[in-house]
Simulated scan of single mutants.
Amino acid sequence: MTSTATTPDPAERMLRFHQPEKVLRHLGPTPDEAALAALFGLDTAGYRARLDRFTARNRAAAAALAATPGAAAQPAALPFRPGEHVVAVGESSTADRLSWFEILRHLLPEHVRCTNLAVSGSTTTQALANVPMLAFQRPDWVLCMLGANDVQRLDGVPLVAAAETRRALRTLRDLTVRRTGARWVWLTPTGIDPDRVVRYVHFRRAGIGWSGADLDAVAELLLAEPEVTVDTRAAAHGHLEDDGVHLTPSGQQRVAAAVLDALRLAAARPHDAPAPPDPRP
């Protein structure tokens, strides 16, 4: 999915959703900020100032969640422990620099490491091709939010067939867990505002769109898996950008709260506890 944040700053709008260093591997593990800034038409100072603003907003959102009475955001209520590595896999809903995951990183216990591997526009098939890179991270936990781009339709035709989405998601999990032993958590795609999607001029020009029924089908697939699954749809409802697809910052904060609630429940489930019966045929 592409960026449609409502900020009047075009560079900040692009910077919010896109991290070129994730796909331009030749830039190296620690690419030069001046080179990255130039990709957005910015100098280094302007690039850094915008990143700092994103970080400040995420810290504020995390603080607000932590201050909620009875919040599950307290570090002791979460299943992560010092020294563990938490990795996010996803598309623009997670790649967003104001995403639920970027809020979450400010709520974890000290010395828990976070890596956001989400790439805007990613399909499940593309994510599956990146299993070697994911496994190289040696995650203790993987939080996976994928499937929304699979059901994007081009002139009415979905990018990825439903059977392939199912296969790719399960294979992504199975290969990663087999290689790393990581604990896996699913997040469903959020819903959409169909009226906004239809009206959004850039989608109309490109001949692309989304169906709420398609997204619900992916959500129900994930909710039937044996791992913890966070249903993000209710949290996101009414908190979408003008395109009717992407979450507003307030929507991201609400999704972060839903993730925290689910992780609190996961904390009470021992790692070696038997998984629920597999409902798959």
Rank of each mutant, 00 (worst) to 15 (best):
E110I: 07
E110A: 13
H111L: 12
H111Y: 15
V112D: 00
V112F: 06
C114N: 03
T115N: 05
T115V: 14
L117C: 07
L117A: 11
L117R: 11
L117G: 15
L117E: 14
A118E: 03
A118M: 08
S120L: 05
S120A: 13
S120R: 05
G121K: 01
S122G: 15
S122L: 13
S122Q: 15
T123W: 04
T123P: 09
T124D: 03
T124P: 00
T124W: 01
T125H: 03
T125M: 01
T125L: 06
Q126S: 04
A127K: 07
L128Q: 07
A129Q: 05
A129N: 04
A129V: 11
A129I: 08
N130W: 01
P132D: 03
P132S: 01
M133K: 10
M133V: 10
L134G: 06
L134Y: 12
L134F: 13
A135D: 00
F136M: 14
F136Q: 14
F136T: 15
Q137H: 07
Q137R: 02
R138M: 06
R138E: 09
R138D: 12
P139Q: 01
P139I: 02
P139N: 04
P139E: 00
P139L: 06
D140C: 06
D140P: 06
D140L: 06
W141P: 11
W141Y: 00
W141K: 03
W141C: 02
W141Q: 05
V142A: 09
V142Q: 00
C144Q: 01
C144D: 07
C144I: 02
M145D: 09
M145Q: 12
M145R: 12
L146N: 02
G147R: 11
G147D: 11
N149C: 02
V151S: 14
R153W: 04
R153I: 05
D155Q: 10
G156L: 05
V157K: 11
V157L: 14
P158F: 08
P158K: 07
P158M: 06
L159Q: 13
L159H: 09
L159G: 06
V160D: 08
A161L: 08
A162G: 14
A162F: 14
A162Q: 10
A163E: 15
A163H: 14
